[in-house]
Amino acid sequence: MTLNQLKPPRCAGCGIPLQSEDSMKPGFVPASSIDKEEAVCQRCFRIKNYNEVSSVTVDQDEFLKLLGGIASTDSLVVHIVDLFDFQGSLISGLQRFVGNNPILLVVNKIDLLPPVTNWNRLRNWVQKQAREEGLKVVDVVLCSARRNIGFDRVVEAVNTYRQNKDVYVVGATNVGKSTVINRLISDYSDLKRELTVSRYPGTTLDAVHIPLDDGKSIIDTPGIVYSWRMSEIVPRKDLAALLPDKPLKPLTYQLNEKQSLFFGGLARFDFVEGDRQSFTVNISGGLTVHRTKLERADELYEQHRGVMLSPPSTEDLDTFPTWTRHRLRIAPNSNQDIFISGLGWIQANGKQGATVDVHAPRGIRVLLRESIL
C-alpha cells in the first residue's frame, strides 16, 4: 500500500481531509459517501446546493493555526461576538494574528436586550470592553441576525471596509456566525450582485471560500470552541434552556447578606457580606432561579441537584465538572456586573459595595465587569 493510499480522502470543495465520525467537525461526510469520487464535505455540500453555510467547530489550538495565515493577507476581518456572552465569545488574541488587517466587530443578539436600551451607550461599552481585551476595531456594528435587526448596517460596513479585499469571518461557537454569513449570501441585494457568478467553495484547508464577482471571497472559518463557556459543557439537550432566544426578562432580588441564588443546577450566587441591596439577574427564561439562605445552600444542592436544581439532570451529574468558588468584591459606588460566561450576568445595584461568591463549574469564566446596562 502506498503512502497516498493511507492518507484520508479530501473534500473536492475545500480540500479538508474527510471524516465521518463527527458532524460538528470540519470535513464531515456520511460514511456511505466518503469513498466516492469528488466527494464533498457537508459544509461545502450545503453551500453548493442550498447557498447555506452550516456550523462546524475546531478546538482552540486548531483555530489559532488557521488564524496564523491571515496576517500575510490583505483582508477585512469580521469578528462576530455574542452580546449575551461578550467576554466569553470575544477572541482577545485576534489582533496579533491578523496583523494590520482591519477588524470589524459585529455584535450579534442585541434582540435579547430591552427595546429601551441606549444603543449609543452600548456601542461605547462594546468599544471599551474590546480595547481592554487588546482588540483594535475599525467599527462596531450592533445587530440581530435572527430577528433581522440592524443587518443593513452590517452589509454597509462590510462594503465600506472591504475595499476590494477578501473577508474573513471569525467567531466562537453559538455566536450566530453562520446566520450572519447566510444573510450576506442570500438575503441582501447589496451583496447578491457580487454573489451571482459562483457560490461554490474555493480550495483551502479548514475554511470555505465563497467567491465574489471581483475575484475576492468571503471566507468562512470554523467556530472556535472555548471551554470556559457554559454552552460548551452543558449537555446538548440542555442548550435550549441555557441559550435565550427571546428578550431577557431581568429578575431583581432584594437580598440580605448570607442569602443565595441557584441558577438551575449550573451555578450559585452567594451574597456573602454587605448591606441589604438588590441584584438583577439576566439569564435565559428557560432556567429556574431558587433562593435560599446561605447556611442551607450546600444541603439544598446535595438533596436536589439534578431534579429541582437542573439542568444538568441526574443522569448527567457524573460527567459534569465540579464547582469552583470565585470570591468577588464589588467596590462602593461602582456600576458592575458579575459575569458568568454562557450563563448571563447579575447586575449589582447597590452603591455601598458587597462581597459575593460565585460557584460555577470548574474552568467556566467568572469575572466582574462594567455594567452593560
Rank of each mutant, 00 (worst) to 15 (best):
F339K: 09
G150F: 06
G353D: 10
V141C: 10
D190L: 12
L18N: 04
I364R: 06
A241W: 02
S217F: 10
V225M: 08
Q87W: 00
S89E: 03
G99D: 06
R146T: 12
H290W: 10
F63N: 13
V141Y: 10
P26W: 08
G93R: 13
D22W: 01
V98I: 13
V154A: 06
L261I: 15
P114R: 07
S227C: 00
V169H: 09
F84K: 10
G150M: 11
L251S: 11
D318W: 03
W125D: 00
S92R: 14
C11A: 08
G215T: 07
F339D: 12
E52P: 00
L368S: 09
V167C: 05
L104M: 05
A267R: 09
A348L: 00
V98L: 02
P17T: 06
D190F: 03
R147V: 00
G265N: 02
T324M: 07
I224H: 01
S89Q: 06
L90E: 06
G306H: 01
L243I: 15
E273G: 03
Q303W: 08
D74Q: 14
G285A: 11
Q163G: 03
P332N: 10
Q254F: 13
H79V: 05
D74C: 09
H359D: 15
E370C: 00
T2D: 14
N51T: 03
R123I: 08
P222V: 08
L373N: 13
I47N: 11
A172G: 11
P211H: 08
V77C: 13
L212Q: 13
I218H: 12
